[in-house]
Design a protein around this nucleic acid. Structure first.
Lengths: 222, 222
DNA sequence: TAGATTGTTAATCGATTAACAATC
DNA sequence: TAGATTGTTAATCGATTAACAATC
């Protein structure tokens, strides 16, 4: 009778399928857009359209969280939004550290979407001493060696790697050594980390290559 | 006897599973790293490790392309690299246009990984006239209205959207109107486009939210 | 030949979808 | 009650994996 296999959707230890987890932030954003537009209630059909999925998938996904709609009526936008935010964990504030303040690091530090969605950039780290005078997006750029102190002082659990490829594994090792167990990696390398560390990667040129593959095939059949 | 359902892996019109297509660029990068390090031949086990997958999945993926290994020996690194590059379509050069030259647009324009992987940024477009004097990464920033001419002159098939969310749908509509059928979207909105247009999205805060979900659960069970 | 490693098969697992009973 | 819409079921589809025959 492990908590991991509980069938009760309100059990916080049950597993939500990965594909569903990846879509919850999309639903959250769609609900926020609806709320900003003055919508108080919506059907699964409306929300699905706003999120770019079909309504069967949306309802199936929401069923893993619990039963937050009303049959014959639909969903209360604010209520559902809160439930999803709570499920994801963005009702609390997540301190984040960004390592590597090149063009991409700058863009990330300035990205307002982080703050508005529950993330707070508490430090920007760079190995280059000539950058340690800079202030980016109101945050001081600090030496990479400050990582340990910053993780401890702010309780950082999420690290973002925006360094060149050659530095990324070292940065990841140091993050892991300091207790960070969730890493968002923009460097084009496969990071090797312990099993209990989560790495998500964003690789711009991989995305373009996937598009190129399909584009090439469109040309061939057209 | 449709070409779409051909079983011959060398038939260029057959379908490769999406999950496999998304991993081919990873294999390509791993092979390039191996080649740069002087490796001439590798086993599926070595390549799989370098790419961060298991060897059964790697071999299954490669089997969709053809039979490019030698039993008992492994794969010739350069040969396999060429075959994957050809399959993806990055043996040719893809002209790309980037719209929206904020922090992220700058980072994308300066990203050397595009050029080295078969993509060439032919134009940077921005709606803000005060930016039209700028030169970023050796490319002039032009008015958004130049899109039609640039797509025509350079044969652009891939567009990158790095504008604020409110502008993204308009930009997508204009791209589609000008014949672009592959879009990489960094704006946090669901784009609505015709069926024959491919959209891939990169959403930084969604990636962080997925990490936050898992991080929250780690805390609960630890 | 003996050892090594690919390419393929078949079983399993997870995700998607349509349909509809439950119920507001 | 009649109409609308959710939450769930069950079928289908696609992806992963282990095992191994083929073959260098």
């Amino acid at each position: 009778m492990s908590a991991r296999t509980s069938a009760d959707p309100r059990d916080p230890a049950r597993d939500i399928p990965e594909a569903t987890v990846a879509r919850l932030p999309v639903y959250l954003r769609a609900l926020t857009t609806l709320a900003d537009g003055g919508t108080r209630t919506c059907s699964s059909e409306e929300l699905a359209t706003a999120a770019g999925v079909n309504s069967a998938k949306l309802r199936k996904d929401l069923s893993y969280l619990g039963s937050y709609g009303t049959r014959g009526v639909g969903y209360d936008v604010d209520y559902l939004r809160y439930q999803i935010a709570r499920e994801i964990g963005v009702t609390q504030d997540w301190p984040v550290v960004i390592v590597g303040i090149g063009n991409l690091g700058h863009a990330l530090a300035n990205y307002s979407g982080f703050r508005s969605r529950g993330f707070r950039v508490v430090a920007l780290l760079d190995a280059d001493p000539s950058r340690h005078q800079e202030v980016v997006a109101g945050v001081d750029v600090r030496p990479f060696d400050d990582l340990e102190r910053i993780v401890r002082d702010h309780g950082v659990a999420i690290g973002v790697i925006a360094t060149p490829a050659v530095a990324a594994q070292d940065v990841a090792d140091r993050m892991v050594a300091n207790g960070i167990r969730s890493i968002l990696n923009f460097a084009p390398v496969v990071l090797s980390v312990p099993d209990d560390v989560d790495v998500r990667k964003v690789d711009l040129s991989i995305e373009l290559q996937i598009l190129a593959y399909h584009e090439q095939r469109k040309g061939a059949t057209a």
